[in-house]
Design a protein around this nucleic acid. Structure first.
Lengths: 359, 359
DNA sequence: GCGTGGACTGCAAACGAGTGCGGGCTATCA
DNA sequence: TGATAGCCCGCACTCGTTTGCAGTCCACGC
């Protein structure tokens, strides 16, 4: 039945190609499987004598015994596994976060199942259900929207989770995000220092907390610096990508030609601006300054290198993972969230505004 | 003991918060668990009467029954899981491949464990061991080197695997790669057509099949077009990244200033060239043309947009996954490999050579 | 009327590890 | 010497599912 049948030794016993099991170890050490189990598990080792523990451990090592995590999970109802829910892995924002998460999980003996939702709620539901049926012990979620009933339902069912990059309104769930408000304030100050007075904002989707926080911070910063406070200078992008960034930029240019700088909701939206500049022959930064957000990999290689707000992606992932592990270990702890510091990364997409042509 | 204790109904029975099990379904349908199992599994459903199958399925649906994959794996020794071994997820080459893999796996009810090796052999060994102990049914490997004893050992132990982007010498293991040789031939022809006669090559590491195949194809193409065949124009990069690409480019420029174009082993190496151009005030493409390889995301946004060889990353992943599933389903089939077609993507980093300054 | 066969279904034993419980042994003390 | 406590260790069951085997029931044919 099995492709490679167990071969018979001359003595007639079956030589198993299968990896050794706990019983094999026990037998080799001359003890019962239960004893072997206790000897191998540090937290129960005190229940066996030092001598037998030593024998069992040695036998395990010589046999190359590896505990079967599936059997262990079945018995303990713990999987040492968490789910990681992101919109799309090919968005360069996420790989560094994922690495941060995995680096922490790995150190604790955990692993992550990654699922992509493509921002489709139905797909998200299906994929999360599948994660839960795989007995994940918690979820790290990067797809949260401001109003997200499904996540609320999960939370009420007691599913442990941590949000990254996003928050959900009225939901007592820990989150880890960059300090978006400060980042935007830094960006606006940078432009104001350069002399810009009329600054536009291509806001991210207002269905995401990130979009809301950043655009609110933008309005505050404009007022704090006494800059031109014109609501029509704020346009919302439907999604966080280049195409929608370009669309918003075109809309903005069509109705107003007097602003000299743009704060983009994130780097991809800034990329969309670049596309429109190319279309319309606008030179950046001479005619228009742009600031992005995130400092994505390779964004420094663009034409021109993008001035942006640097975000500690790896740390965001790492902190989120650590926080989720904390929640798993002590379920009674109350949620604690984290805002990670950002930095202003000045490159070549921003400069002094060109004096307006005299009329 | 358990944090949320099972609550008691007025009747005194225990209301379990736990998800329903197969026995619950069986009980609800008035049959034995074995029968329920057969009814729920399409391939054994013919063993039970249509009527009971209907009852069981209905009961499962009303209870919201989800089979426990852990218990199933323990019994069947199949995990519906494969391992995916890559050097580093933050290399933009991999996310599209990963998506291709997951799209196929998901459709077949499989999932992937992703591990990053950072090209460290020891780390690779540990991570693959951990995958195996998690009972993965096969591996997709993107970290293969030309000489890779560990992979050979795995293969001899009967571990099913598929290589992506790479091959291993003398190893009968299926692989899926881009048609590297044709890609390089296209790149050289493109430069030859533009009038370049003296073309350099920043080869990838010769410890990887990709590096070997591409540099061999480069030498062939140079001869086929009757171009200047100077071995000193080929420099090997230690790794496939920007820093090593830049190092190689500096070395090349220091010893020869008469070549007018470079074929980079991949896009990241080409990025390294860009850095050196900036350092030394060389203008691209006016003074030096560059061709990359892979057509990474966002590489079209560079200064200047990179001419490169387009590779169907998503398809590579998808085909590799399909191939692995085939190997799992019919272990006796002989290995079959795949070379996927590439395309020439001409952008602005290549142009006619500038006539050499008259002496 | 009895044997035969086919169609279902239940029983019980697995898969590999973890764990409450009890039994055996030794040491200690009266 | 006998009772007791304490330390180790093994027995047996459990997690949820699959599956070989055996049994039941009914219909059919000789």
């Amino acid at each position: 039945m099995r492709p490679n049948q167990p071969s018979l030794t001359p003595a007639g016993e079956v030589k198993r190609a299968q990896p050794p099991t706990l019983r094999d170890v026990a037998e080799a050490a001359g003890v019962h499987a239960a004893t072997a189990s206790r000897a191998l598990n540090p937290s129960t080792r005190r229940l066996v004598s030092a001598e037998t523990a030593r024998r069992v451990i040695k036998a395990a090592k010589t046999l190359g015994y590896q505990p079967n995590p599936i059997a262990r999970s079945l018995k303990t109802a713990k999987s040492s596994t968490v789910g990681l829910v992101i919109p799309d892995l090919t968005n360069p924002l996420f790989p560094p976060i994922v690495r941060g998460i995995e680096d922490v999980l790995e150190a604790e003996g955990f692993s992550a199942w990654i699922v992509n939702t493509d921002n489709d709620p139905e797909r998200e539901r299906v994929r999360i259900d599948s994660l839960r049926s795989r007995q994940v012990e918690g979820l790290i979620i990067a797809t949260a929207r401001v109003d997200h009933p499904f996540l609320e339902a999960l939370h009420e069912q007691g599913v442990k989770m941590v949000l990254v990059n996003r928050r959900v309104e009225n939901l007592e769930v820990p989150y880890v995000t960059a300090d978006d408000a400060t980042g935007i304030a830094l960006a606006v100050r940078h432009l104001a220092d350069l002399g810009h007075r009329r600054i536009a904002h291509l806001a991210g989707p207002q269905g995401t907390s990130t979009g809301v926080v950043r655009s609110r911070a933008f309005r505050h910063a404009i007022r704090d610096h006494g800059l031109e406070d014109d609501p029509s200078l704020i346009v919302e992008c439907a999604r966080w990508n280049e195409a929608d960034g370009a669309t918003a930029m075109r809309e903005l240019l069509d109705k107003d030609d007097r602003f000299t700088a743009v704060v983009a909701g994130n780097d991809l939206i800034a990329l969309g601006c670049y596309d429109v500049f190319a279309e319309r022959g606008i030179s950046c930064p001479d005619e228009m300054s742009v600031v992005g957000f995130n400092d994505m990999p390779f964004i420094d290689k663009l034409r021109p290198p993008l001035t942006t707000v640097g975000v500690p992606h790896h740390d965001i992932g790492a902190e989120a993972a650590r926080m989720l592990l904390d929640c798993i270990e002590e379920p009674e702890r109350r949620p604690r969230s984290l805002l990670l510091p950002v930095t202003m990364v000045v490159r070549d997409s921003t400069t002094h505004p060109r004096p307006l042509p005299s009329p």
